[in-house]
Amino acid sequence: MSTQAFFHALQNSSLGSGIGTLNPLFGALAQLFHIAGFLLILTAILLVNLRLFGVGLRNQSVPQLVKATNPLILYGLGFLALSGLFILLPSADIYYANPAFWTKALLLSLALIVQFTLYRKVTASESPNRILAYVTASLSLVLWFGVAFAGRAIGFV
């Protein structure tokens, strides 16, 4: 099955077509959950990455901030995944044809890889290597903000 056929099948699945027939109010609610998740993740990651650069909440240790922000990131990911599927499924064919969607998917994959490897490793240390901290923070910020930027671009392409 090609990717295109897969997306077509998603849209025509009982879940995809079922969501498509719901009151548009649910669509608006999904958009609101999507932006709530976006704010939770981006601001939480920003707080930790600023600290990796040695600015922002610099009186606190990196692991202390990670401990406080990790639940927000997980809630954010949950909100984004569920609302994202809700938005994607009934219009999968349109998203398949949109290059900005694929840019977002690529950036999101890279952001998640960095999140669960480099970011997790570097932020576990009380005093991470400065160069490694800078590289991690730059990568994480560029990728996550890139995901949001590409996400907004979907509506323009």
Binding site: F38, L39, L42, T43, L46, L47, F145, R152, A153, F156
Partner: peptide, 20 residues
């Protein structure tokens, strides 16, 4: 689109940080 994108991601600093 770039201005709109910056308006959106700027929220992580403005509204996001004020909410935190």
């Amino acid at each position: 689109p770039a201005v709109e994108g910056i308006h959106l991601i700027g929220l992580a600093l403005s509204v996001g940080l004020i909410l935190f």
